[in-house]
Design a protein around this nucleic acid. Structure first.
Lengths: 209, 209
DNA sequence: CTCCCGTTTGAACCGCCAGTCAACCTGATC
DNA sequence: GATCAGGTTGACTGGCGGTTCAAACGGGAG
């Protein structure tokens, strides 16, 4: 009756759908995500989703990587603007703690990591993608370290930057899981303290706050 | 025809089903686990599964916690037999690395952790259970540390045992995820090295091998 | 032997949801 | 203004899988 085909050029439908999908996955979890939900979210018919992506699976994988991509790029851009390495490190840590900053709901991003991991367990394509995403994340840690050593802010006598980044990144992952799952003893504040503490010890900088 | 109701007392059906469920979940993943699969695995009809558990969900949650329970108890028993704290620590680390020891497929156990986490994200009951399971695991680390300090094997001047255990446990989680997902640079051997290294640094013991 | 009750089966039910399809709509092109 | 092509719809379907249920089974008690 009223709502028939629009056919306005409609800014990139593809991306629109991917974004909607990422939102739905965040809300309901990968297992509970239906094509209908995604269609509803962007006011479109379920058929159209399949028209663009061929199958549900293809959309899901793309949505998971896309969302992660966005978060990474956002952080990366933000860090690059900061002049001091210690400032970058502080911010990186802040952004790593789920639910610490109310404005960013990093909670969502971490929840998507979990979904990615489970899927990667049995989907080789997703496993490959996961490794790329993860590598990039660890790299931005080691870049900050190297940057700080270059500018003389951080001592250069400590261990290899890549090794430190890997160890630190792993610990952040482990802690973030607990925080994300509402652990009663591992609160965002506590995770933040621990991260600063460990970063100080490993990198030798004096994290503020 | 041939196979009709047995009605032999049949050693605990309940447990039999839970074990079968854990196996199927490990094999196919939580999302792909069907009641039929579990029924097949223990040579029983799907109806019986529901007879014992009422719903699929109840069985799944019980299976996930049960499997984790078993692994924990096995490790706990094993460690208690070892006289030296450093020996206990070595073994604990070995057992934490997915796929390091061919005899135990800890790979499976870690895969189940992932499933638990995802489920805990939206199922409060599972979240509660997950915290219990996790707490216990971290506790067995700090117990080893305390034991080593008591016997004089480990220096006592370092940080609080619980704090160390928490940090170390978190890092193990993070590393294990990478290994589990077949990361090309984070191999079991490398994770093992890193764990020994960090444990030495944090606890001050000289891990062997 | 017979009744009884917890166990077990197999078939049937039912809602759900990914994917298909034919029709339709719209804006562009000639 | 006719044709065309790509975007969009909504109804349909086919299968899958959790759950229900009536019936059957078999060991133990009386």
């Amino acid at each position: 009756m009223s709502t028939r085909a629009r056919a306005k050029p409609q800014r990139d439908r593809h991306q629109e759908i991917v974004e909607a999908a990422a939102q739905v996955i965040t809300d309901r979890g990968l297992a509970e995500t239906r094509i209908q939900d995604i269609a509803d979210r962007c006011g479109v018919s379920p058929g159209l989703i399949l028209y663009y992506f061929g199958s549900k699976d293809r959309l899901l994988v793309e949505a998971l990587t896309y969302a992660n991509d966005q978060s990474y790029l956002r952080m990366s851009r933000e860090l690059r603007k900061m002049p001091a390495a210690s400032e970058r490190m502080d911010r990186l840590i802040q952004l790593s703690v789920p639910g610490l900053l109310p404005e960013y709901s990093l909670l969502d991003e971490w929840a998507l990591w979990l979904e990615i991991w489970v899927r990667a367990l049995r989907d080789p394509e997703m496993a490959k993608e996961r490794e790329n995403l993860d590598r990039r994340w660890v790299q931005s840690i080691s870049e900050v370290i190297r940057y700080g050593r270059q500018t003389g802010e951080f001592p250069s006598d400590a261990a290899d930057a890549d090794d430190i980044a890997m160890e630190f990144g792993a610990m952040v992952d482990g802690l973030a899981i607990q925080v994300l799952l509402n652990d009663t003893v591992m609160t965002p504040a506590r995770m933040h303290d621990i991260c600063l503490d460990v970063a100080r010890r490993l990198i030798g900088y004096d994290g503020t706050r």
